[in-house]
């Protein structure tokens, strides 16, 4: 099992976190960079999230024009996996509490 799969199975929640905190949704945010191709960003968003072309294109344009976009809102454990996948594709991504 890879670490990313392990994350999906276990999450990285620290011991002092309450169940309530773990259950709160987290935002997965993709950030703009000046060189990643727009077409590639659209392609990655479609691959990872299953978005249709229009949705992925709108999100890419939001990243490009506004500097960032929330591409998913998920439980923390899932959001960490998503961010790791985005990093694996070379996109700038972070997560933050909703």
């Amino acid at each position: 099992m890879s670490a990313i799969e392990e994350l999906a199975a276990q999450g990285t929640g620290t011991s002092d976190q309450t169940e309530q905190h773990r259950d709160r949704p987290w935002r997965v945010i993709v950030w703009n960079d000046p060189v990643t191709l727009m077409s590639y960003v659209v392609f990655v968003l479609r691959r990872l999230f299953g978005y249709d072309l229009e949705t992925a294109t709108q999100l890419m344009l939001k990243v490009h024009n506004e500097g960032s976009a929330v591409v998913a809102t998920e439980a923390r454990e899932r959001a960490e996996v998503t961010v790791a996948q985005l990093h694996a594709h070379g996109l700038q991504a972070t997560l933050a509490r909703d």
Binding site: A3, I4, E6, L7, T12, T14, E80, V83, A84, H87, A93, T94, L95, A96
Partner: peptide
């Protein structure tokens, strides 16, 4: 980085 917080980032990096 995935997290702004250093401790959370360290844990994230430790795992992935």
């Amino acid at each position: 980085r995935a997290y702004e917080d250093d401790a959370e980032e360290e844990e994230f990096q430790r795992l992935v």
